[in-house]
Design a protein around this nucleic acid. Structure first.
Length: 304
DNA sequence: TTCCAGGGGTAGA
DNA sequence: TCTACCCATGGA
């Protein structure tokens, strides 16, 4: 699909750079997102039209996302839903001005203020983000991509007119699926966690909207840790996706970046990351993340 | 065959 | 609170 083949568009304005939001972490490569030809694609689920594959594009340096909806025009209800989904995924309502003010005096983070960097892409729903977070646990990134693609193919609704494109599944089909159905997704030990998560959401036992309403990160973290399959890393990663940046999700990349020996415990990694970035307070993760981006782009090691 | 990856759960000390 | 062990998968 090419964005030029579209017959309707939607413009979404942001406070920050969509370019950095998309490329600063790997979420844009997880289905039903895909990155191709300098354009981000996503199969969105619209209330009236069902699954539609839209193209999201922007010019470098601008803060406007142009959403192209190919094929049949969508109505006002779908248009409003699509706008809300894009705004959520790009964090249109988040204000990073305080973080940028802190960055201006830091050599490795000044670029954040200059480029209006801070937001990181997230999925259209919290459910999708939790499932994807569980799929990052103890596996290579390429395996994460495969597992998420498998879930979409097995349980997601196909997008009419687009080959091999599926919306991300809702909790219902996952909750209703058997263990055998899940085996095809090749999730390994993660299958039982995701199945239980879906079942709890469908049963109303777990209210994911409550996570969005909870403004105290410590309380929210405890809520996240109540989900089987979500541990310290997963909880901090979900906090980040929900807009709380005070805790760093310590994975093997953090360990490598900070030069922490493989034999050091996960707790030790968390301690050292907290010591290093603690002065950034509620922006600790953003400081770590974008300092690492700066070092990678400039071919330098982690500064002391 | 062994190791490792964007770890987590559980039991036991 | 910490450690050891197990949990599936797949590529190197």
């Amino acid at each position: 699909m090419s964005p030029s083949s579209a017959n309707s568009t939607l413009i979404v304005r942001l406070r920050h750079s969509p370019d950095f939001a998309v490329h600063s972490h790997g979420w844009c490569h997880l289905a039903p997102f895909s990155w191709n030809d300098d354009c981000l694609y996503r199969v969105v689920r619209l209330p009236k039209s069902g699954p539609r594959c839209v193209a999201l594009a922007w010019s470098t340096g601008t803060r406007t996302v142009r959403v192209t909806i190919p094929g049949r025009r969508i109505g006002a209800t779908d248009r409003q839903s699509l706008r809300e989904q894009i705004r959520w995924m790009f964090r249109a309502d988040e204000d990073f001005s305080e973080f940028w003010a802190l960055c201006r005096s830091h050599p490795a983070l000044r670029h954040c203020a200059l480029n209006r960097t801070g937001a990181l892409l997230r999925s259209a729903t919290v459910f999708e983000d939790v499932v994807k977070t569980i799929c990052t646990v103890n596996c290579h990134w390429r395996n994460t991509k495969r597992m998420v693609t498998n879930l979409c193919r097995l349980f997601g609704e196909p997008c009419p007119g687009v080959a091999d494109a599926f919306a991300f599944p809702t909790p219902e089909p996952m909750a209703a699926a058997s263990e055998q159905d899940f085996q095809e997704a090749r999730l390994g030990f993660r299958a039982r966690y995701i199945r239980e998560l879906a079942r709890r959401v469908v049963d109303g036992e777990l209210d994911l909207n409550a996570w969005c309403r909870q403004r105290d990160p410590a309380v929210l973290r405890e809520m996240l840790l109540s989900v089987k399959g979500i541990g310290s890393y997963g909880a901090n990663h979900m906090l980040m996706l929900l807009g709380h940046y005070g805790m760093i999700p310590c994975d093997s990349e953090v360990r490598a970046y900070l030069g922490i020996a493989a034999k050091a415990s996960a707790r030790e990694v968390e301690r050292r990351a907290a010591n290093r970035y603690g002065r950034w307070g509620r922006y600790a993760f953003l400081a770590y993340k974008f300092e690492r981006v700066f070092c990678k782009q400039n071919y330098v090691d982690c500064p002391d």
